Simulated scan of single mutants.
Amino acid sequence: MTEIVFTPIGTVHSPFSDPRDMPIQPVGARGVRGTIELDPACAAGLQDLAGFSRIIVLYHFHRSNGYSLEVVPFLDKTPRGVFATRAPRRPNAIGISMLRLIAVDGATLTVEDVDILDGTPVLDIKPYVPAFDAYPDERAGWLTTTSGAARTMRSDDRFC
């Protein structure tokens, strides 16, 4: 395969400095506030973003080393294929979170529902559009019976 190189466009600032005991999904981080500081050269790309209530943030799991194609995810005790999970130790350590957008101020975004480690490099930001991005009636595989636990589940050291 051909190597792909990304340059971060910004950095997440959150109250989470240790990957242990932090929320595993934005639903478990309701009301947790943070910021995303973009490279000032990218600030023009934020034009019109303030009209959206949520954004999709793609980021690099910068503290994740190596990967396994089979993992025991936080919400289960059964080994699962990594691509059927949202585990951070992946062949390409890319994360995704849907965050509430509170404010845009220059090159800084204030966001809520932050489940991202402080200092995480941001790769891209996209607007969340319910008409395009919400499919509530679709199947959720093995997560159908456990996804509700994401509101209270906290990470541990299994992916550190």
Rank of each mutant, 00 (worst) to 15 (best):
L99E: 02
L99G: 04
L99F: 03
L99T: 04
R100W: 01
R100N: 13
R100Y: 00
R100Q: 10
L101H: 09
L101V: 07
L101F: 07
I102F: 02
A103M: 07
A103W: 02
A103G: 11
A103N: 13
V104A: 00
D105E: 15
D105I: 07
G106R: 03
G106V: 05
G106S: 06
G106M: 00
A107G: 05
A107C: 12
A107Q: 14
T108P: 06
T108S: 08
T108A: 02
L109F: 05
L109W: 01
T110Y: 01
T110F: 02
T110S: 11
T110P: 03
V111A: 09
V111G: 09
V111L: 04
V111T: 14
E112K: 03
E112V: 04
E112T: 03
E112Y: 00
E112N: 00
D113V: 06
D113E: 14
V114M: 04
V114L: 11
V114H: 01
D115H: 09
D115Q: 10
I116L: 06
I116F: 00
L117F: 00
L117P: 11
D118T: 04
D118H: 15
G119Q: 01
G119D: 03
G119P: 02
G119Y: 01
T120N: 10
T120L: 08
T120Y: 06
V122L: 10
V122C: 07
L123R: 07
D124K: 05
D124E: 13
D124H: 11
I125A: 09
I125F: 05
I125L: 13
I125Y: 01
K126Q: 11
K126E: 05
K126F: 04
P127I: 04
P127R: 11
P127A: 12
Y128S: 03
Y128I: 03
V129W: 00
V129S: 07
V129T: 13
P130K: 09
P130L: 04
A131S: 14
A131Q: 13
A131P: 02
A131K: 10
F132V: 14
F132Y: 13
D133P: 06
D133G: 07
D133V: 10
A134H: 12
A134E: 12
Y135S: 15
Y135V: 11
Y135R: 13
P136K: 06
P136A: 03
P136Q: 07
P136T: 01
P136V: 05
P136W: 01
D137Q: 14
D137S: 08
D137M: 08
E138R: 11
E138W: 03
A140Q: 06
A140N: 10
A140E: 10
W142Y: 05
W142Q: 09
W142E: 08
W142R: 10
W142V: 10
L143K: 14
L143V: 00
L143N: 12
L143H: 10
L143D: 04
T144P: 00
T144R: 05
T145F: 01
T145V: 09
T146L: 06
S147I: 12
S147Y: 09
